[in-house]
Design a protein around this nucleic acid. Structure first.
Length: 445
RNA sequence: GUGGUUGUAGCUCAGUUGGUUAGAGCACCUGGUUGUGGUCCAGGGGGUCGUGGGUUCAAGUCCCAUCUUCCACCCCA
């Protein structure tokens, strides 16, 4: 059988895992610094928890898990022939892999509300799955690093999250990231002003493509959705606006003004804090249907796709029976951040420090003698290992070379008798015999 | 889900208008070196040519289907 893994999934080599862990550690460190606490949720949820939360397109991308046992037992055999695959899925799949971390989080908050203190600030770093066609920067299994605060409508949360984003990318060394913000109420106000509320979703998805397909493309798309020329002209004027003051005269209604006010407050706070990476972006809209307030997206120059995104959702917990709880959060796409950092060679060289010293294995007696020396160097904090088999020296040295181990210690019968060892520097090739009690001192030099 | 693209050794790839026994580099193993890697030399193992069907005297090569890769759309981290 030829080994393979499912479409859109990946294996990771040790080097890659070390780099990925560097990203996770950096992000987690920042999350903790702002007082967020970790949670975890199962990799799969009851399917009802997930369906209907991400729009029709999103539902299609949820991986469903076939029921165990006789999964056709509950299906009417007579109807089976004509049943639609969508309906069949409902009756044979009761569980599904999580699609993101936000919806399971809403479920978690409702379920554990008695054990949580609100406002609840949590972070969560776990994989999610989407049955999407893989392409550049898009995988079927990938990690999200979510930070959310739920149970507070204060804009301080938005400000804090943007500070976190700014700090994470600064620490990772991604210099040219741009944080864009907008507000669903601004978009809603735009729709209201133009009396096109029924086309709100069309408006959102069309505007969101502005950077990609431009004025002409968006015009074409809105027109195909049945919007009139007057409305389209107004939308164009809106989307082209580069600042809040420019859109003021287009949005003269309470919704729009409220949104502008909030964005303005956030930007003012950020300015006071010296965070300059964040700016208003009128053409930012975001597809996910649960956003109701601020929306945030981070991009890097010349890199396709967003590397971090999120927003405020006023009633995600409502569907699980807990009303009037507002939350806001963002999600870092660890795999895209990895691709970006790899492309720009931003990983520090020490993410892959490994064994510093290897003891060659000359046989049972010598190896046994090395064990106490091994223990000693490890106590001193030196990463060390003993070659497990008494293989030929050529093989043992090849191993050390392949693993880029800088020092090899040779303890054969002669050295053992004199309580000495021969230490070889693999880079220079030079080697000398020292007293074994000087080993740690020698390596620390 | 739609359109395109890719698949030959563990990896990267050659392979002529269809023609005998499918090659190279790297990697791996053995030896040159019974205590020495990274260089060198000699030798070796490893392929149902993604899979299934078809055309043909003959298919890695042509046709169909399917899976996979990558890219774009939709949508999204």
């Amino acid at each position: 059988m030829k080994p393979s893994i499912p479409k859109g999934t990946r294996d990771f080599l040790p080097k890659q895992v070390n780099k990925r862990n560097y990203i996770f550690r950096t992000i987690e460190g920042v999350f903790k610094l702002y007082g967020y606490v970790p949670i975890e949720t199962p990799s799969f949820e009851n399917i009802d928890t997930l369906t209907g939360k991400y729009g029709d397109e999103g539902d299609q991308l949820i991986f469903k898990i076939l029921n165990s046992g006789d999964y056709l037992a509950g299906v009417d055999r007579e109807e089976l022939a004509e049943i639609s695959s969508g309906k069949l899925a409902d009756s044979i799949a009761g569980k599904a892999l999580r699609y993101d971390l936000t919806v399971p989080f809403a479920r978690y908050v409702v379920q554990h509300q008695n054990d949580l203190t609100f406002p609840f600030k949590r972070y969560q770093i776990q994989p999610v799955w989407r049955a999407d066609r893989p392409q550049k920067g898009r995988y079927r299994e990938f990690y999200q690093c979510d930070v959310d605060v739920i149970g507070s409508a204060s804009l301080h949360n938005e400000v804090e999250l943007i500070q976190i984003i700014d700090q994470v990318f600064s620490e990772l060394g991604v210099s040219d990231f741009k944080i864009g913000i907008n507000h669903r109420k601004i978009l809603a106000g735009l729709a209201e002003g133009l009396s096109i509320e029924s086309n709100f979703n069309d408006l959102v998805t069309a505007i969101d493509k502005w950077d990609k397909i431009g004025e002409e493309g968006v015009t074409k798309e809105l027109s195909s959705k049945g919007l009139g020329g007057e409305a389209i002209t107004a939308v164009m004027k809106y989307a082209k606006s580069s600042s809040l003051s420019h859109i003021g005269d287009i949005l003269q209604n309470t919704k729009g003004e409220r949104g502008m006010e909030e964005v303005n407050m956030i930007l003012t706070e950020l300015e006071n804090l010296g965070v300059s990476s964040c700016a208003f972006n009128a053409s930012l809209a975001r597809g996910l249907s649960y956003y109701t307030g601020t929306i945030i997206e981070v991009i890097a120059d010349g890199f396709s796709g967003s590397i971090c995104a999120g927003g405020r959702y006023d009633d995600l917990t409502g569907i699980f029976g807990m009303k009037d709880i507002s939350g806001v959060g963002v999600s870092f796409g660890a795999d895209r951040i990895y691709d970006l950092m790899e492309e720009r060679q931003l990983f520090p060289s020490d993410t892959n420090v490994s064994t510093e010293l290897m003891f060659a294995n000359f046989g049972a007696e010598e190896a046994s003698f090395c064990l106490s020396l091994l223990k000693e160097v490890r106590v001193a904090g030196i990463v060390a290992e003993l070659y497990p088999d008494a293989a030929k020296m050529k093989k043992q040295f090849s191993y050390a070379d392949a693993k880029h181990i800088p020092y090899v210690a040779l303890v054969g019968a002669d050295e053992m008798a004199k309580n000495e060892l021969t230490l070889k520097n693999m880079a220079s090739g030079e080697q000398r015999t020292i007293n074994s009690s000087d080993l740690v001192k020698e390596l620390k030099r």
